[in-house]
Every structure is written in C-alpha cells, then in structure tokens.
C-alpha cells in the first residue's frame, strides 16, 4: 500500500475541490481499501466522503431517490424499497455478507471493481489494471468470467448485484463535478471493455455519484432477483437475473429483464423483454438471454445457465407459462 494523503471534508464542494487525478473517494471502503492493500489501487489522495450530506431514501412521485452514501443493508430493509422494488431489496440482501452490507454504500457498490483474479493480482498482467499488458483470463482460469460484452482485451465480470436490478429498472445516477451536475442512465454509465477495459464508466475525473434515482414503475412490485452460485451465500453470482413483470388479466403486458454474473457490465435483455411483450412463452423468451455470448474454455456453462436463470426468475414472479 502506497502512502497517501487523507482528508475528510464536510461539504460536497470541499470534497470536489480536493478531487482530481490520483484521488479516490472513500465511502464504505470495502472495495477501495481491499484493492489498496493489494497495490492494485494506489491513490495519492484519499477523500473520505462519509461526512457529506448524501443520505436519505425517499419515494417521490417521480420515483425512488437514494443518497449515494446510504448503506446496502439500510436500503434493502427500507419499507418502500422492499414493497415497491423487491428486486432491489433482494439483490442487495443476496450480496456479500452482513458485515460488508453494513459498510458498503450504494454509490460505492456501483463503482466496485471486478473480482477477476488477474485484475487483483499484481504479479500477473491485466489490460484493465495495466493497459496493454495482456489478458491472461482469455486462456487461464476463467470459470467466473463474463460471456457477454467481452473482448479479446477483457472478459472481467461486473460484480455488482444491485446494478443489475437498477439497470432493469432504468435507473440513473446523479453526478456532481466542479463544473456542475448531470444525470446519466446507469445503462449508459457503464462502458464495454472493447480495447480500453481500463475505462469502465462515464465518470469524469473528480466527479462524484451523489444520488441514485429509480423511476416509478408500478408493476415493479412483481419482481425478483434470482442469484445462482456454487454456495448458498457469500459468493458472487455465476448467473443472476433481475426480472419485473407487468401481469394484467393473466397476461404479460410488459417485462424488465437484466442479468448479472455473465456480463462485463450489468446486462439488460431487450430482446427477451420484447419476446415477452409479444406474448411468447417464458421458455422461448428466456432462450434469447445469451444472444451474442462469447464463452471461454471454463465458462461455457454460463450460456445455458443464464437462460435457465432468467426462466426461473420469470416463473418465480409470474408462475410458469
């Protein structure tokens, strides 16, 4: 771990003044400190943002507003979240461990780095960590890696569960920088690795996530997050599905479907949604879940697994049809 400066400003403007190249914001610390200990991240300035006024969970007419510093567990157990957006609540509760959920913020969760073993090991090469050095995952240990959105440069899986639910719900993040404020749809926020896997999102240097906004969606009450993994708890997803279904008169009118554990970014599935709106069976719709998949030697099972995970999630929400 490299020596670093530390500041804990009280105001957003103060935090933004300190931020820039070589700085890192510290919220729960569950990703940042972990990666600093491994020398994967070595910020010169660490800005503790825990005193900033970025709290609050509020359900308004336009949707759900979550302050960026709200902790995963608090959001998951919030009454309005659990009632109106069960998939968010479930995605959070199926993440990590209680200790981590008590510390990790929603903003930090969206910014968490991949669990790719090569990214985390300074003794190996990694295009994400050290651009141009190579991607050992293409031929190495890749059971947990992505099959969707990959490139020859990177197949690292996006690790967040709740980001999958949020992408399904068309959520946005509000960003503050020294030049002002803007909102970006989460689906646009994350970038595919392509040839530049070290560029993971649209955040500008020194910019801070201040809020997560989830649009109002009445039928999101009929939703679930299914997470499939080798052990029952405390593990990242091999495949997951966030599904909400608008079920009226016994018919599927609309649906939201996104998957995790299989993509380099949280992966929305418009083709599956369209098939469901068109009245296709769950079986046929979920068969579209792995379109464009590019499996590696160790993770080809994910192609079938993700389809089955979507099917299982659809049936959990709406019964079999």
């Amino acid at each position: 771990m490299r020596a670093f400066d530390f500041a804990a400003p009280r105001g957003i403007a103060g935090a933004l003044r300190l931020a820039g190249d070589g700085s890192a914001f510290l919220a729960g610390g569950t990703t940042l400190v972990d990666l600093m200990k491994l020398n994967v991240l070595a910020p010169e300035h660490v800005i503790d943002i825990n005193r900033l006024p970025l709290r609050g969970i509020r359900l308004g007419p336009d949707g759900l507003h979550i302050g960026a510093l709200e902790r995963m567990d608090d959001i998951a157990r919030h009454g309005a979240v659990a009632a109106q957006y069960p998939l968010i609540s479930q995605a959070l509760l199926l993440s990590a461990s209680p200790q981590i959920r008590n510390m990790a913020s929603i903003g930090g969760n969206l910014m968490q780095r991949t669990r790719c073993g090569y990214f985390r090991d300074m003794a190996t090469s990694c295009n994400k960590r050290s651009p141009g050095s190579g991607c050992p995952a293409q031929t190495g240990d890749n059971r947990g890696h992505a099959v969707l959105g990959t490139s020859a440069s990177c197949a690292a899986t996006h690790a967040s569960d709740v980001a999958v639910a949020l992408v399904a719900l068309d959520a946005s993040v509000r960003l503050r920088g020294r030049d002002g404020e803007r909102s970006v749809r989460l689906a646009d926020f994350y970038l595919l690795p392509g040839d530049t896997p070290h560029v993971e999102n649209r955040l500008r240097p020194g910019e801070l996530i201040t809020e997560v906004i989830v649009p109002r969606l009445q039928w999101a009450r009929h939703s679930t997050y299914v997470k499939v993994r080798d052990r029952q708890s405390y593990e990242f997803a091999l495949a997951s599905a966030a599904v909400a279904v608008d079920l009226r008169g016994g018919k599927v009118r609309d649906a939201r479907v996104a998957v995790g554990g299989v993509g380099t970014v949280p992966w929305r599935l418009p083709a599956v949604e369209a098939a469901l709106r068109a009245g296709q069976s769950f079986e046929r719709a979920s068969a579209l879940a792995a379109e464009g998949a590019r499996p590696l030697a160790g993770n080809s099972f994910k192609v079938e697994l993700v389809q089955r995970t979507v099917l299982r999630a659809l049936m959990e929400v709406a019964g079999s049809r």
């Binding site: 073993g117 985390r120 050992p136 190495g140 947990g144 052990r231 029952q232 708890s233 405390y234």
Partner: peptide
C-alpha cells in the same frame, strides 16, 4: 493454470469452502 503453474483461485473468495448456509 496449466500454462503457468499458478493457482488460479488462490483466495478465500475464490476457493470456496462451505459457509453456514
């Protein structure tokens, strides 16, 4: 890893042992 002889999942997050659940 057959090429390098490195253990590919040598962390407790990646080498899985049962948890209570």
């Amino acid at each position: 890893e057959p090429e390098t002889g490195r253990f590919g999942n040598a962390t407790m997050a990646d080498y899985l042992v049962p948890i209570n659940a």
